[in-house]
Design a protein around this nucleic acid. Structure first.
Length: 361
DNA sequence: CGGATTTGACCGGT
DNA sequence: ACCGGTCAAATCCG
């Protein structure tokens, strides 16, 4: 891409992001004075909304310019696992026959699936129901010792792979440097609709990994740890080749972490990489706005917005996740996300005309 | 007993 | 041949 354009583009992104940040700070400040009127709040939301729409439009058009043409995930001839020379092993016959159908439908799609990585810090206490719980139900299907890595990598797939044809997978790799940090790589977006039941979901796999693998800090549970809870999020558009997209969000939770409510949750973007831009179809999990009274979250809708293009916020609590698929009815803070907007559509058709102003009306 | 996890084997890409 | 990713039989667990 043209360097000058790139610079201007990034500068614009930065400026807009800063604007969002400042507005958030203002809102924070106003709300701390306990005298914020509804009118003020409305104005703040509008300001933020304008920023976010501009950002989104910019990023969409930017990515349209920069993104290579992705592979259309349609069915077609593929290199089947069935032996071409016609002499598969007996066991392979079984498997390959079964897999053949799946591969036809999935193989190409998988390769073009969005992939992003998060670094999640897990403490002994937050290992329970902390922010690392992405609200989805995962089933472990493998574990591998990785060359050069201290800890094995665990492989998970969506529990509802077969039931709902949801092909999301994730890999959990404990960091060599910091054993409390787990690098979680998500591949593909959830197409299942399990989030509404997320409150009933078991602990996240990485938390269990943590418990299993951790032999440190045992028994030292403190609120300080909860308060210091942080998670860094990195989004990689591996499927988009050269366009590296990186963003980091930090999430700070109040001491009453376990009793988190929409009202007291604080969530902010701490850093937006200068290369930040929309990359493609990421998990649609967190696109819906929260309830009108969840002010802190509504101001973070840049991240929500990113949910269908950029940043995947995995750190919403169960109650948030419960809203994910139902919040279309409570859409007040994020006019960007229309009620009928299909994220699957977005994922499957990255050429969706976002630069069409009518899309946002 | 059914669902989840473990773990060795298999497979494809490099 | 090596390595990462996946499969599936065996095992575990609630």
């Amino acid at each position: 891409m043209d360097c000058a354009f790139n610079w201007e583009y990034n500068t614009l992104i930065n400026e807009l992001t800063q604007g969002i940040e400042y507005t958030k700070q203002l809102r924070s400040y106003l709300s701390s004075m306990a005298s914020t009127s509804e009118h003020q709040e409305l104005l703040l939301q509008k300001i933020l909304s304008s920023y976010e729409q501009s950002l989104l439009i910019l990023k969409c058009s930017g990515s349209a310019v920069q993104s290579p043409q992705p592979v259309t995930p349609t069915c077609g001839a593929i290199e089947s696992s069935v032996s071409v020379d016609g002499s598969p092993k007996s066991e392979d016959k079984k498997r390959s026959f079964k897999d053949h159908q799946e591969l036809i439908n999935v193989s190409k799609k998988r390769k073009s699936q969005p992939t992003w990585t998060e670094q999640v810090k897990v403490s002994a206490e937050t290992g329970f129901e902390g922010p690392t719980d992405d609200g989805y139900s995962w089933r472990k299907y493998g574990q591998k010792d990785i060359l050069g890595a201290k800890y094995p990598r665990s492989y998970y797939r969506c529990t509802y792979r077969h039931m709902q044809n949801c092909w999301t997978t994730k890999q959990v790799q404990r960091s060599d440097d910091d054993p409390t940090v787990f690098e979680i790589t998500y591949k593909g977006s959830h197409t299942c609709h399990q989030a509404s039941n997320s409150a009933l979901q078991p602990k996240s796999p990485e938390n269990q990994e943590f418990k299993k693998q951790a032999n440190y800090q045992t028994g030292q549970y403190s609120n300080e740890i909860l308060m210091n809870l942080r998670a860094n999020l990195r989004v990689d558009t591996n499927d988009l080749d050269k366009n590296e997209t990186t963003a980091a969000c930090s999430f700070s939770f109040p001491p009453t972490f376990s009793g988190l409510t929409d009202e007291n949750r604080h969530f902010q973007i701490s850093h937006v990489d200068e290369n930040l831009m929309i990359g493609g179809g990421y998990s649609p999990s967190f696109v819906s706005p929260t309830t009108p009274e969840s002010n802190y979250f509504s101001i973070s809708s840049s991240c929500q917005m990113n949910g269908f293009g950029m940043v995947h916020n995995v750190h919403r609590s169960e109650s948030d996740l419960t809203d994910i698929f139902s919040a279309n009815t409570s859409s007040t803070s994020s006019p960007i996300v229309g009620g009928e907007f299909s994220l699957d559509h977005f994922e499957l058709d990255p050429n969706f005309p976002f630069d069409n102003p009518r899309f946002f009306s």
